[in-house]
Amino acid sequence: MSYIRGYDPETLREKVDPRQCRERLDEIGEQRSLPALLERVWLLKVLGKPDDSLVLAEQAVRVARMAGTRKDLMRARILHASVQQVRGAFAAADQELTMCADEAEGQGWAGIAAFAYQHRGRVHYDSGNLDSARRDFKRALFLRQESGVPDDQLESTLMAIDAVDRRRAAASVAS
């Protein structure tokens, strides 16, 4: 079940129903499985609790490193980086996402690489580096198309590219 109801066209953040997310968080409770940890990290992040989310993200990376697959570890690291982004630690998020994107592409994991590029694009977007954001979103779009992902994932990437273009156009009009 997806808790995402869309994306804010200006911030590119997920739109969610907070009540539904809190209910799911209560359902999960203190489960320590990797999928439960990752879901709790994401739920706390979208509910505006980045500090709590970061603590769990670090735990999820450790659990994935000890007991998960390489793909599990990659997903945990990408989510950890997305929490860093929300907290404003753009350089750390960029570095982690760059390593993840490079490794995923090297392994031929197009879907995971696209996920890393999409998040790195958001880091660049938030930090005002619009050319890099657009480049990352375009790369994510290509990889997602190559992977045959559902239309909603393509739409979120297309919306991100459009947001970059709108912000660049507004900046050129202002100057």
Rank of each mutant, 00 (worst) to 15 (best):
L154G: 00
N129K: 14
L38M: 14
A163W: 00
G128Y: 02
V164C: 09
D136L: 02
I78T: 09
I4R: 10
Y7H: 06
T69L: 04
L143Q: 07
A57W: 07
A110D: 15
L56E: 05
D136N: 02
R70C: 05
G121I: 01
S33E: 04
L47Y: 01
A64N: 12
L79F: 08
L38F: 00
V41R: 13
L143F: 00
I112L: 12
L44K: 15
N129I: 07
T69W: 00
S175K: 15
S132G: 09
A174G: 08
L25R: 04
R24C: 06
H124E: 03
L25P: 00
G48Y: 03
V83D: 11
R65F: 08
L44M: 14
A116D: 08
A113L: 01
A101M: 05
D26E: 13
F137T: 06
D51H: 12
W42T: 11
V55I: 14
S53V: 10
Q145N: 11
R122E: 12
E39F: 00
A140C: 04
A110E: 13
A113P: 04
T11K: 06
Y125G: 07
E105H: 09
S132T: 11
L97S: 08
A113Y: 01
K138L: 13
Q107P: 05
A169C: 00
D131I: 08
V16M: 04
L79N: 15
G88I: 05
E103R: 13
L154C: 03
K15A: 07
A89I: 11
Y117V: 07
R135H: 07
P35G: 03
L130K: 01
A81R: 09
T98E: 13
E96I: 15
S2G: 09
C100W: 07
S172K: 14
S147F: 00
A110C: 10
A67R: 15
G148Y: 03
V41P: 13
R65L: 13
S2Y: 01
Q20I: 01
S127T: 10
V86R: 13
E105D: 14
E27V: 06
G68H: 11
E105G: 14
S33P: 08
